[in-house]
């Protein structure tokens, strides 16, 4: 990872908030397929940005560029006012970027604490420091208002879909992360579970994090997003405060790339 300090007077702050992550002119192609074309995107702290787009619009590729799984062919990524090159998931994690993928990456046979600390266990000499991990996990969950789980020592297999999502999010924010990317967090959830997860997303914002939610679901978008960005065939066709959009205009942008409204 390379980090270069630069002043960026040419990039205005968004809505009074300085952007935590700014993407400028991101290009990415796979062979002959141009997946992303000159994409600009701002992800400010304390705000939820919804990234919308139809299948094949480039949402996943953009997410993977942010997560360090793909490297853009060209373009700039500016993290907290500094140019960065994210060359792998570890670089992203070191900056404070955590991605919660749709499959959540939880081990069903392990309990909540074990999952939250998987790969970053606290040790007491050669043995696991279970007490300290359990306390930290409980604090993180309580801080996010996740209090519906019966015990943080229950296996993840016994949790509901919304609770699993909550555990995956808590796992992501526990490491002093500053930007959390959620990939389709409410897909496959019922009404009550969806409400719980959206509450959780709002709480992340209240904790001062930048949140990016990738979703198809327009209900979720208007319920939780402060800002909306729409991708269409690899191009960003719209970006702005959620109040500038309505349901029909987002659908228009997603399907045709423009909107008359």
């Amino acid at each position: 990872m390379t980090v270069v300090d630069v002043a960026h007077p040419d990039v205005p702050a968004v809505g009074g908030q300085p952007s935590l992550l700014r993407l400028r002119g991101i290009d990415k192609h796979f062979g002959a397929v141009q997946a992303l074309y000159q994409v600009d995107l701002d992800l400010p702290a304390n705000e939820v940005t919804a990234l919308c787009g139809d299948n094949g619009a480039g949402k996943s590729v953009l997410t993977r560029c942010i997560a360090g799984i793909h490297q853009p062919d060209s373009g700039e990524m500016i993290w907290d006012g500094r140019h960065v090159n994210i060359r792998g998931p570890r670089d992203a994690a070191a900056l404070g970027i955590e991605v919660v993928y749709q499959d959540l990456a939880l081990a069903d046979n392990l309990d909540i604490v074990q999952n939250m600390f998987l790969g970053r266990e606290r040790m007491h000499r050669i043995f696991l420091d279970e007490d300290s991990m359990e306390r930290a996990a409980a604090q993180t969950l309580a801080g996010l208002g996740v209090t519906t789980v019966r015990s943080i020592r229950q296996p993840v297999a016994s949790l509901s879909g919304g609770q699993r999502q909550a555990v995956a999010v808590a796992k992501a924010v526990m490491w002093n992360s500053k930007l959390v990317v959620l990939d389709e967090p409410t897909a496959a959830l019922g009404v009550v579970q969806t409400r719980m997860v959206l509450d959780l997303v709002r709480r992340l914002k209240d904790h001062g994090l930048a949140v990016m939610v990738i979703t198809h679901n327009l209900n979720d978008v208007f319920e939780v997003a402060d800002r909306i960005a729409v991708l269409h065939l690899g191009r960003k066709v719209a970006e702005g405060p959620a109040s500038d959009f309505d349901r029909q205009s987002v659908v228009d942008f997603m399907t045709t790339g423009s909107s008359a409204r």
Binding site: D103, A107, D108, N109, L110, Q114, E121
Partner: peptide, 16 residues
């Protein structure tokens, strides 16, 4: 812990 994690979900273990 890693033995159990890999047995439960190898992908999750790899990403961790």
């Amino acid at each position: 812990r890693y033995v159990y994690a890999i047995g439960g979900n190898p992908d999750a273990a790899r990403r961790a």
